[in-house]
């Protein structure tokens, strides 16, 4: 048993279970807020469509499986690519016109795009979810002695952390990342060096979207594949991003995991507040450190 005096006692197994769930939610928050931060850094657009693109990733996996028989492993590659492609179309046809306007228009445009995508899916698939089983190799439980760990959930945590780290390395340690950082600071000067910044913007948006799509594939076997799966998530991710501050890539990742865990803990000790705990944290951060945990004051 695990007790917090005067609050609650419960079996350790339940605590571990909720912490694992928190870690999984945290993985999705981290992957999504990471993509939002990368896109915002370069494009100065808050991508409201991020949740819809995540949903799209899950739907593409499901669709690949039922129509072409492509298994999970294929979806892990093709679904992010497909979502990235959709993002290229969005950027090339509409979003690029927003860069010279007030950033609020970018938010409004992507909000509209979200409504179109989600509305269309809801029209054809209803509000209910489609089942998508985990791949056989990752099915079943793993007995750790102190708890039973579903293998797929462990996999999601591990692969998400790896994806976040890989993204961080790509941005902080490679030449392409240096272009990205420099273009975030001063796009015009970077262009005078001969770097095609408009192309970089398209690719950055596609990359952020592909990360959301990747998260969607990971989520498909855990949650049901449903048109509404991204809707509420994106608002939580906004709160994560506000609390973390968008200045730092690592900050986005760390805040995502911390808030996911905190949400898991709240589910254990005060489940009524688990829906709002992240928003409460955001409010507290705004009071104490308005620029965000990892943000620099503007």
């Amino acid at each position: 048993m695990f007790c917090i005096p005067y609050v609650k006692c419960l079996p350790l197994v339940a605590l571990y279970g909720q912490l694992l769930l928190g870690l999984i939610n945290g993985s999705f928050y981290a992957l999504l807020s990471l993509g939002l931060a990368v896109i915002f850094g370069m494009l100065r657009v808050i991508n409201f469509a991020h949740g819809a693109l995540y949903m799209l990733g899950a739907f593409v996996s499901w669709w690949l499986s039922i129509t072409l028989g492509i298994p999970y492993w294929g979806a892990l590659i093709f679904a992010p690519l497909a979502v990235g492609l959709v993002a290229v179309l969005i950027e090339k046809s509409m979003l690029h016109q927003m860069y010279r306007l007030d950033p609020l228009y970018g938010l409004l445009l992507t909000f509209g795009i979200t409504q179109v995508i989600e509305g269309t899916f809801r029209y054809y698939y209803g509000a209910s979810g489609q089942p998508y089983p985990p791949p056989p190799a990752l099915s079943g439980p793993l007995n750790l002695g102190f708890m039973i760990l579903p293998i797929y959930r462990a996999w999601v945590v591990v692969i998400s952390i790896l994806a976040c780290l890989a993204t961080w390395l790509l941005i902080e340690r490679t030449r392409i990342g240096a272009y990205l950082r420099a273009a975030t600071e001063n796009p015009v000067l970077v262009q005078t060096f001969g770097i095609n910044v408009p192309l970089m913007m398209t690719l950055t948006y596609a990359f952020g979207a592909a990360l959301a799509g990747f998260a969607g594939v990971l989520a498909a076997p855990i949650y049901q594949v449903s048109p509404l799966m991204g809707t509420n998530l994106i608002i939580i991710v906004f709160a994560v991003v506000v609390a973390g501050g968008m200045g730092s890539i690592l900050g986005a990742i760390v805040t995502g995991y911390i808030l996911g865990l905190l949400e898991g803990l709240t589910k254990v000790f005060y489940p009524e507040a688990s829906n709002i705990v992240i928003f409460v944290v955001m409010a507290i951060v705004l009071l104490l450190r308005p620029a965000g945990l990892f943000g620099r004051a503007a």
Partner: peptide
């Protein structure tokens, strides 16, 4: 309706 609202937005 949501699709139409989205389209008008865009």
């Amino acid at each position: 309706v949501t699709v139409l609202i989205g389209l008008i937005f865009v």
